[in-house]
Design a protein around this nucleic acid. Structure first.
Lengths: 230, 230
DNA sequence: TCCTTACTAAACCGTTTGGTTCAGTGGCTT
DNA sequence: AAGCCACTGAACCAAACGGTTTAGTAAGGA
């Protein structure tokens, strides 16, 4: 009867902790919040495949193997679940992306760069990165916060790359006046062709030869332009 | 359950001619099919803003200023309307994109290239290009035909660019062994930074200075790498 | 005058949506 | 034993969906 106290229910916490204090796990509770993780995983897979509007909450519950009320007890509504699932995904991918640029294996700059390029290309064309890019592009128009989250993820990768550049500049190997621009250029050069094909044609994942061709081309162009001359 | 009989739906007629035999236009019929155009325009704006699943047919009818039955008499169902609106959009943008690369104003290759780069960058960051990219990325996962259409649109632009390169190679100004790769590189270099920012942050359209910075950077890097030496 | 043609607003149909409620269950602790 | 707990499945709700039907209108040609 008193139908409309719906208002105060809407600011859900996003704070995923309605979980049991003592987790019901057998022992020392390896997945600190297993149910929430399963829900997030189900949500991610559904949202990636069907988009926000195309995904029903029932479908998510089905994929997560969880009842709908449980789902709603963890995440207040569909939007909150979407935001949480995307943030979770971003966090995972960010670590992966960063690992692509911070493992400077060689002391020869060109070799190190080639190494980085190969890893970056391989990362960018990976199914998970493609799916995530697609989600970000698709939904950030209506959910600006999501776009910002994704953008920041990319920025940290860029910062890592800029760190590399500064080292090479200090060593007198590279000469770059606009490092921001250079980093952006390096990264887009790693996207050449393959990402596009993965995105619009559903090409099968590129071969190592494809990856090498692009990485090689990127490094060559980049190094030709930014190598310190004489 | 029966979620995916989407396949054969996309090659719908696309042929917009359920219009009256003798068009009811006053005279020689200036807009050969004005109603269909209005519907397409309404559909485009709605789909771009809300996505396929997020857009209701009622909303399209409202934007087009047309009744729902009329809409259904022109385009059989929502998917057909979506396909038609996207194809229409692609056609428009393709012409615009191509015009960016085929107006070789100068006989100095570097100047001509700089000119092309500026036009390509300006095109890529234009609101319509951004919106279209977003649509293509968002929906091509579920509607592969759409992805292919968009990809082909990009390919024609690339072909135009490659034509330019061949002329410059013949003139002994550029030295390129893999022109496909070079064209891809040139185009992605024109996307640096600005497109990303436009896509994920809803930045206001970049200034001419921004565009020049990117175009300049692209040409410099490209020309450094592919200029014929000695 | 009457018929046809293109269109409209509005009601309608069956289904699905996001979200809630509820009765009940298995495992824990005390 | 009793109570608590997170959880489930199914039913339920109002709203919105894609799509169709209906009744009616304005214009043109005979």
């Amino acid at each position: 009867m008193d139908r409309d106290q719906t208002v105060s229910m809407m600011e859900t916490v996003l704070d995923v902790t309605p979980a049991p204090e003592g987790t019901t796990d057998k022992c020392c509770g390896p997945p600190l919040n297993a149910k929430a993780q399963r829900i997030l995983a189900g949500a991610r897979s559904a949202f990636q495949e069907l988009g926000f509007e195309g995904t029903s909450v029932d479908e998510i519950a089905r994929r997560a193997g969880v009842s709908k009320p449980t789902l709603y007890s963890y995440f207040g509504d569909k939007q909150a679940l979407f935001a949480a699932s995307f943030a979770d995904q971003c966090q995972g991918e960010a670590a992966l992306a960063l690992s692509s640029v911070d493992g400077t294996s060689s002391d020869c700059v060109e070799t190190a760069l080639r190494d980085v390029a190969r890893r970056v290309v391989a990362f960018l064309v990976s199914p998970s990165a493609i799916l995530m890019f697609r989600s970000a592009v698709a939904e950030s128009g209506r959910f600006p916060a999501l776009g910002r989250t994704y953008f920041e993820t990319g920025e940290t990768t860029k910062k890592g790359l800029i760190g590399l550049f500064h080292k090479a500049i200090a060593a007198g190997v590279l000469a770059i006046d606009d490092v921001e621009l250079a980093a952006d250029q390096f990264l887009v050069l790693c996207k050449v062709d393959l990402v596009h094909k993965q995105l619009f044609l559903q090409a099968e994942p590129p071969s190592e030869a494809d990856i090498n061709r692009v990485a090689e081309g990127a490094v060559k162009l980049f190094f030709d332009g930014y190598r310190k001359r004489n």
